[in-house]
Every structure is written in structure tokens, then in C-alpha cells.
């Protein structure tokens, strides 16, 4: 395996069961699956940085994606998301998109390949290296974790639209989802990943939550 998530070392110390995703080790499970599923309902923290991410910027970025048979959010829906197979595409601005692979990621692979292969030959379409770390905060008490770290009132944020804000002083992008059992995807600059993970882990621990493996969130990884 060539890649490694920025919190790999922190997770290793907990002796998880490892799997592989996109050429990177991914922690699948830390304790019994039932326990992790229970935590997922109340409060859980999960590292999913193994998913690959890329950015595309430039006046031709939207057209490029459409040519690749991707339907990005329209111009008037900044911060909206659309599925990209089992991954997603986010419109971050008039000429800027963020893409994340899913587990299968055929379309993502196709786009990433086209972008890197033609990086210097597609006027108006510029690939942006994105190596975002990505965490999931999930469960009924997930909002309390964010309340202790972030000034955004997520009660008012619609699901399916990312929020650009700061968590514990780190610039992040958060995608809220779920209602009865909220779930938040958090993306951030990988150089801050260890710091933010430690902060979130502390708070989750104080709130009687648990760190869970990715198989708990994505059963197909198990």
C-alpha cells in the first residue's frame, strides 16, 4: 500500500482490524461490531480519510465534469452536493468543485485520470491536489461535539449542503446528514488532521462516545 491516512498512527495505537481502501489501510473495527453500531447511534467518531479526493477549478471545470457524464450542482447551488457513483461532487464556487471517491469509484477514477493526464492541455480546467482528511461524527450527541468546537448552529443547516466553517480552530468543510440520528462528514487540510482528531476524540470520550471503524459506517467494507 502506498497511501496512508494522516491519523493512521493514532488509530494503530488502538489495534483495529485493518482493511484496504484505495491503496490505503483503513481501520475497519476497533471492538465488537454490535458495540460500534450502538455507539454509532449515540456518539461515534470515525476516520474515513482513505477515500480519495480531488479538486477541479477553472472556467471550464463545470463543462468538463458534464462531459465526463457527471451532473454537478448547478451554478446557483453553491455548496450543494450531488452523488458521484457512491461518492460525491460538491460545488464550492462558480468555477470550483470538490470530488470524493466512493468505495467503488469508477467515475471518480475516470475523472481523476482525465484531469491528471491532461493537466497541462485543458485550457480552463485545472486539477487541484486535494488530500483532505475526512472524519465522521455520528449519533444523537454529535451536535454536542460540534457545539463545543464550532460556532455554526447545525440545527438550521439543511442536509445535503456543505458548510465551510472552523472546528476547534481548523478550517473545515462539513456535510450534515440525517435528522433523528445526525451524521456529519468533516473534511480538512491533512496537516491539521492529527490535532483535530485528538481534540474530537477527547470530546467524544468526555461525552461517552467511541471511536468506531469504517465498517460500522460502510458495511460493504467489512
Amino acid at each position: 500500500m502506498n497511501r496512508q491516512t494522516p491519523v493512521h498512527n493514532l488509530l494503530s495505537a488502538r489495534n483495529p482490524s485493518w482493511g484496504t481502501l484505495h491503496d490505503a489501510p483503513i481501520a475497519l473495527r476497533f471492538v465488537e461490531m454490535d458495540t460500534e453500531h450502538e455507539a454509532l447511534k449515540t456518539l461515534a467518531l470515525c476516520d474515513v480519510s482513505a477515500f480519495r479526493t480531488i479538486g477541479v477549478k477553472g472556467p471550464g471545470a463545470g463543462a468538463f465534469l458534464r462531459v465526463q457524464n457527471v451532473d454537478p450542482p448547478p451554478l446557483d447551488e453553491t455548496y450543494a452536493t450531488r452523488p458521484l457513483d457512491d461518492g460525491l461532487v460538491v460545488r464550492l464556487g462558480a468555477d470550483e468543485f470538490f470530488l470524493e471517491s466512493g468505495i467503488e469509484s469508477q467515475t471518480y477514477d475516470h475523472i481523476a485520470h482525465a484531469l491528471t493526464r491532461n493537466a497541462n492541455t485543458m485550457p480552463g480546467v485545472y486539477p487541484i491536489v486535494r488530500e483532505d482528511a475526512s472524519f465522521i461524527i455520528a449519533g444523537k450527541r454529535a451536535r454536542e461535539v460540534l457545539a463545543q468546537t464550532c460556532g455554526v448552529n447545525f440545527r438550521n443547516e439543511p442536509p445535503g449542503k456543505v458548510v465551510l466553517t472552523r472546528v476547534a480552530g481548523v478550517n473545515v468543510m462539513i456535510l450534515p446528514s440525517g435528522d433523528a440520528s445526525p451524521r456529519y462528514r468533516v473534511w480538512l487540510d491533512p496537516s491539521y488532521a492529527t490535532y483535530l482528531w485528538q481534540q474530537l476524540d477527547d470530546i467524544v470520550h468526555d461525552l461517552n462516545g467511541k471511536v468506531v471503524g469504517a465498517a460500522c459506517v460502510y458495511p460493504q467494507l467489512a
Binding site: P6, A168, G169, S191, Y192, T194, Q199
Partner: peptide
């Protein structure tokens, strides 16, 4: 509070 002081680490920090 929890004294949030974001510090960055390079991928080779470990």
C-alpha cells in the same frame, strides 16, 4: 476551555 491551538504536522511527523 479546551485550549484549542491548532498545530500542523507533516505526513512524516511520526
Amino acid at each position: 476551555g479546551r485550549r484549542f491551538h491548532p498545530m500542523r504536522r507533516t505526513p512524516m511527523h511520526v
